[in-house]
Structures are given as C-alpha cells and as structure tokens.
Amino acid sequence: MSKGKIVGAFATSHSPGISGWPERADEAARLAVLDAFAEVRRRIEALEPDAVIAVSVEHFTNFSLSNLPAFAIATGDRYLGPVTPEMAQFLDVSQRHHPGAAALGSHLYRAALDNEFDPALVEGGLEFDENFSVPLKYLDPEARLPLVPVIVNGVNPPWPTPKRCLDFGRMVRAAVESQSEAQRVVVLATGGLSHWVGLPESGDINVDFDKDFLDRLTDGDADRLTDYTAQEIDAAGNGAHEIRTWLVAAGAAGTGFDVLAYEPVPAWLTGTAVAAARL
C-alpha cells in the first residue's frame, strides 16, 4: 500500500460573524468570502481526502490558563461542535458530531514525540467552538470528513514561536508521509487575521499587517513567514496571534498559497481571508 500524502492545504478565518451575522458585512465583501469558502469546499470534495488534519486555536472551551498547551493533538472517534446549544444558536451552526480519524491522530501524536515535539494528548472529549464550527459549516456541512483536530496556542502568551509553528507543520507532513492508513490527507488551518478580542480596539483591522502576511504566505519563503516578533503581531491585535495555525499549514504544504479572498470586515471584527496552497 502506498504511503500517505498531503494533497491539499487551506487556511481560513473563523470569525463568528461569518456564520452568525453575515448580513452585517458589506455585500461585496460577504459574497467574496462566501464564494471563496465555496471554492475551497469544491476543491476538498474533488481531492476526496481520507482525513483532514484541522489546525486551529481554541478559546478556553477545552483548556484554561491553568492548562494551556503550546500544541495539542486529539485522537478521538468523534467531536461535538458547537460545544453548547447556545453557542450553536450564536454561530448559526447546527450542533452535530464530526467523525474523527483516530488512527491518524494517534500516529501524528507519536510522530510528534519522535521529532522532539511534546504536544498534549487529547484522547477524547475535545469540543469545538467557532474555531472549527464556523469554517466547517461551509466546507463540510454534512459532517462527513474524518478529522484530526490540532490545537495551537494563539490566544494567550507565551506562544510558540512562528518558526516552531512552521516546523510543527513540516513534522505533520513527514508524519502523513510515513503512514499508509490515510493516503490522501488535507490540512485545514483556521484563525486570524488581524483582530482584537475583548479590547477597546475591537472592530479595528490592521489591513497593512494582513496584506503583508498574505504576501509572505503567497511567496512561501520560510524565512519571511517566520520573521515576526510577538510585538509585531501584537500590532494587529491579540487575535492576530492565530496566524500561527496558518504557519502550521504552510509548513505542512511546503509551498506558497493563493489568496482566494481577503476582506477587512469591521462588522465581523476581523481581517477575513481564505487561501489555498499551490500543491
């Protein structure tokens, strides 16, 4: 049997407003973003993946300040999202269970340890907030794709460095290529771009930061992608640290990305983007 391969890599924002109050955005911006989600869905369906490694942050739904790992890998058979009926109503996403790719998740965890990463292991019970629930509403509306959820700390300092996140993605690619159970694997990163959470600047968007980051992502040069200090990312908001998930996807893809949409949407409180790796 042939070894596994990453056949696609995508990155999207996950603002609750995308699904919860799309009508508040400018019509042209809303349509551009939703059309990009539809395009990613078409591409994923055409790739016919055996599993999706889904990389995001989480917003203290499963972890807390007393237990906040830099990285975590889940190995469950299924995942509930959104976590509560109230959150489902807030996000306008039907609560459902997503299937898990447990064997691939276990392999990825072992590979991480073998490669000097020490992620937290979540063997069951990981629940989704907007991190996965918002994009999957558009990319997997029938909850058919088997998932390996990966969590990166992008919500509270200290964070893993950008280079560490890119290297984690490279480890993901090597891990996929060293197993044969899931032969066709897609990586999906969600989060960002610029936004402020729970701060007076909420609703502001740092367009310059967003466009510069997307330029680096398009270029695909690892040095440029990881040449950020925490302070430089802070200039785009505490929520901008979620770009670490995109760096994991970039490391897994090993190539540049095409930007399918970028819209600064104050009504969604986020610089909103959708991108696809040139694989």
Rank of each mutant, 00 (worst) to 15 (best):
G4H: 00
K5E: 13
V7H: 00
G8L: 09
A9I: 01
S13E: 02
H14V: 03
I18V: 15
G20P: 03
W21K: 13
R24G: 13
A25P: 04
A28G: 13
A29Q: 15
R30D: 09
A32E: 14
V33P: 11
L34T: 10
A36Q: 08
E39W: 08
V40C: 14
R42S: 15
L47Y: 00
E48D: 13
P49M: 01
V52P: 12
I53W: 02
E58V: 06
E58W: 01
S66M: 08
T75E: 08
L80G: 07
G81L: 09
V83D: 13
P85N: 11
E86A: 15
M87N: 05
M87F: 12
A88E: 05
Q89V: 00
Q95D: 03
Q95W: 00
R96K: 14
H97F: 14
P99N: 01
G100H: 01
A102L: 00
L104K: 06
R110A: 13
A111T: 02
D114S: 15
F117R: 03
D118P: 00
D118N: 13
P119F: 10
P119V: 10
V122T: 08
G124A: 15
G125K: 02
G125Q: 07
E127C: 05
V134A: 11
P135F: 07
K137C: 05
D140T: 07
V150H: 06
V150M: 14
V152W: 02
N156G: 00
P158E: 06
W159V: 05
W159N: 03
P160C: 05
C165W: 04
M171I: 12
V172Y: 05
V172W: 04
R173I: 10
A174I: 04
A174G: 14
S178C: 04
E181S: 13
E181F: 11
A182S: 15
V185T: 13
G192K: 05
V197F: 14
L199D: 06
L199K: 14
P200L: 09
E201F: 02
S202R: 14
G203N: 07
D204I: 00
I205A: 07
N206R: 08
F209C: 02
K211F: 00
K211G: 00
D212S: 11
D215N: 14
R216Q: 09
T218H: 08
D219L: 11
D219C: 12
D223S: 12
T229W: 11
E232A: 15
I233W: 09
A235T: 13
G237Y: 11
G239S: 05
H241P: 10
R244S: 10
T245C: 14
A249R: 06
A250C: 07
A253S: 07
F257C: 09
D258H: 10
A267K: 01
A267C: 01
L269Q: 10
V274K: 03
A275P: 04
A277C: 06
A277N: 04
L279F: 15
